[in-house]
């Protein structure tokens, strides 16, 4: 085990300036992850040439892989920085911002697109309001609950979007994560009452048919969400919806 941790970090001062690489070295101690190491560097912002530099800017919050904030590309893989243990990474550790979202600064990007997509696909169970109506939702079989639970853990972290070859600046493709949320809500006993609206939102330009079936999304998802299962199910549902639209209406 090396006595130092070496980082190569792709930095950029703002959206309109050019990117540059900077190397950092810091003392090793067991138990570090990428976020805890970045915290050390923030307090000691000196690059490996000994020059004082501006502290690295990045996004993080929960530090236990449930909030989705600290996504970045670590040694070529999009993942959560807090759960990337230094001792399990090859050095120098290369950090880059996600490339499919507008860059804010250094390792920080703007993932508003993903939240906009959740709004577009109506990823919610429609209800009258948050007051108590003295009734539960209909019963849910434990097996159905288990499948829904896989999808309800999606953190909107953007790793699947980063890995998807069809999702990029010049494409309208909505990406895997929002389709997973369509599946989640279409499978709820009352959520499914509004499935048509969700299906229409993922039909047509930028919709589910833009998926190229590369299956990268499932490989990088930090929560192992079976996104391709959802894409297959929603694919079938949109086909059926297309036929209904054609013949019934």
């Amino acid at each position: 085990m090396s006595k130092e941790i070496v980082f190569k970090i792709r930095r950029q001062d703002g959206p309109s300036t050019s990117a540059y690489w900077e190397e950092f070295r810091m003392p090793h101690s067991p138990g570090h992850n990428v976020v805890s190491a970045l915290m050390y560097l923030r307090e000691h912002p000196v690059n490996s040439r000994g020059e004082k530099v501006q502290p690295i800017v990045w996004d993080s919050n929960c530090m236990e892989e449930v909030c989705g904030a600290c996504s970045m590309i670590i040694n070529d893989v999009p993942r959560q920085a807090c759960a990337a243990l230094i001792d399990e990474l090859e050095q120098p550790i290369v950090l880059e911002p996600l490339s499919k979202f507008p860059l804010i600064r250094d390792l920080m990007v703007d993932r508003q697109k993903m939240f906009d997509a959740l709004l577009k696909v109506k990823a919610w169970v429609p209800m009258d309001g948050s007051w108590d109506i003295h009734r539960h939702a209909p019963l849910i079989a434990p097996d159905d609950q288990s499948i829904r639970y896989l999808f309800s853990r999606c953190m909107t972290c953007g790793c699947c979007m980063e890995a998807c070859p069809q999702f990029h600046e010049n494409s309208a493709f909505i990406g895997p994560a929002p389709i997973g949320q369509v599946d989640l809500h279409n499978s709820h006993p009352t959520g499914k009452y509004a499935r048509e609206g969700r299906l229409h939102a993922v039909m047509g330009d930028g919709g589910i048919t833009d998926c190229g079936n590369a299956q990268n999304c499932v490989q990088v998802c930090p929560k192992d969400i079976p996104l391709t299962d959802a894409i297959a199910r929603i694919g079938r549902q949109t086909t059926a919806q297309w036929l209904r639209d054609l013949f019934v209406k």
């Binding site: 919610w124 169970v125 209800m127 948050s130 007051w131 108590d132 109506i133 003295h134 009734r135 539960h136 939702a137 019963l139 849910i140 079989a141 434990p142 609950q145 829904r148 639970y149 309800s152 989640l184 809500h185 709820h188 009352t190 959520g191």
Partner: peptide, 25 residues
């Protein structure tokens, strides 16, 4: 007093509460 109502509302929102074999929370 109102805790059960809060839970029922969360249930209606679609929260994936863990279930017993009968499908209740």
């Amino acid at each position: 007093d109102e805790a059960p109502g809060v839970i029922r509302t969360f249930d209606r929102m679609g929260v994936t509460f863990s279930r017993t074999p009968e499908g209740i929370m």
